[in-house]
């Protein structure tokens, strides 16, 4: 019941797994993501975002927007490049793969 209801809401809860965003986000930390953040504005460099892995869209990643790449693509990078799988591996991510912007931690 709850997950179905949650899908309708403009925000979602996630739990971070892995080290690629530390110290900004530590493993097991939980965040609320604003899914409406980019309805009326574009992602900006520095934004923390949840994106779908373009190679495996069922997998969610948390990364930082690096720069705009082309009309509708953005490069996303982990804060710790040596322990991150990101746009260096899978290229720019399209708007449709960006789930939302990290709003706050809890």
């Amino acid at each position: 019941m709850l997950p179905k209801l949650g899908a309708l809401l403009p925000f979602a809860r996630y739990q971070v797994e892995g080290e690629s965003m530390s110290p900004a986000l530590s493993p097991r930390e939980r965040v609320v993501v604003n899914k409406a953040a980019y309805w009326f504005s574009k992602p900006r460099p520095g934004d923390l975002v949840v994106v779908r892995d373009p190679r495996r869209p069922d997998r969610l990643l948390i990364k930082r927007i690096d720069s705009e790449a082309g009309p509708d693509g953005w490069l996303v990078l982990g804060d710790n490049p040596q322990s991150s799988t990101d746009s260096r591996h899978f290229g720019p991510v399209g708007r449709e793969l960006i789930v939302g912007k990290v709003w706050f931690r809890y």
Binding site: G6, A12, R13, Y14, V16, E17, I62, S83
Partner: peptide, 12 residues
Amino acid sequence: LSPPETVSAHCD
């Protein structure tokens, strides 16, 4: 009641 989904910040 409903655990959050995990978002991966790791290296595969």
